[in-house]
Amino acid sequence: MIFTIKRFSELSTTELYQILQLRSEVFVVEQDCVYQDVDFKDQKALHVFGIKNDTIVAYSRIFKPTDYFKNASIGRVVVAAKERKYGYGHDLLKASILAIKKHFKVDKITISAQVYLKKFYESHHFIQKGEAYLEDGIPHIRMDRN
Rank of each mutant, 00 (worst) to 15 (best):
M1E: 02
M1K: 03
I2P: 02
F3A: 09
I5P: 02
K6C: 06
K6I: 08
T13C: 10
T13Y: 09
T13P: 00
T14N: 10
L16G: 01
L16S: 04
L16Q: 09
Q18W: 04
Q18A: 07
I19H: 10
L20P: 03
Q21W: 08
L22G: 13
L22V: 13
L22F: 10
S24N: 13
S24P: 00
E25K: 13
E25I: 01
V26P: 06
F27E: 03
V28Y: 01
V28A: 05
Q31G: 12
D32Y: 06
C33F: 10
Q36K: 13
Q36G: 11
D37C: 11
D37A: 14
V38P: 05
D39Q: 11
D39P: 10
F40C: 15
K41A: 11
K44T: 10
F49N: 04
F49R: 01
G50C: 04
I51H: 00
K52T: 06
N53Q: 14
I56W: 02
V57F: 00
Y59R: 08
R61F: 08
K64I: 06
K64N: 10
D67K: 07
Y68Q: 10
Y68G: 00
Y68S: 07
Y68K: 13
F69P: 04
F69L: 03
K70G: 08
K70H: 14
N71Q: 15
A72Q: 12
A72C: 12
S73Y: 12
S73E: 05
S73P: 14
I74W: 08
R76E: 04
V77C: 14
V77W: 00
V77Q: 01
V78K: 02
V78R: 01
V79I: 08
V79S: 04
V79D: 02
A81V: 02
A81F: 00
K82R: 06
E83K: 06
E83H: 14
E83G: 03
R84Y: 06
Y86H: 13
Y86T: 04
Y86I: 01
G87D: 12
Y88F: 15
G89W: 10
G89N: 08
D91G: 11
L92I: 07
L93N: 05
K94D: 11
K94M: 04
A95W: 01
A95Y: 00
I97D: 03
A99K: 02
K101N: 11
H103R: 02
H103I: 02
F104K: 00
V106M: 03
I109C: 02
I109K: 07
I111L: 07
I111A: 00
S112H: 07
S112C: 12
A113N: 02
Q114D: 06
L117I: 03
L117V: 04
L117K: 08
K118W: 06
K118S: 01
K119G: 00
F120H: 01
F120Y: 11
Y121H: 07
Y121G: 00
Q128H: 11
Q128P: 08
G130K: 14
E131D: 15
E131A: 15
Y133H: 15
D136M: 09
P139L: 15
H140I: 12
H140Y: 14
M143A: 12
D144P: 06
R145G: 09
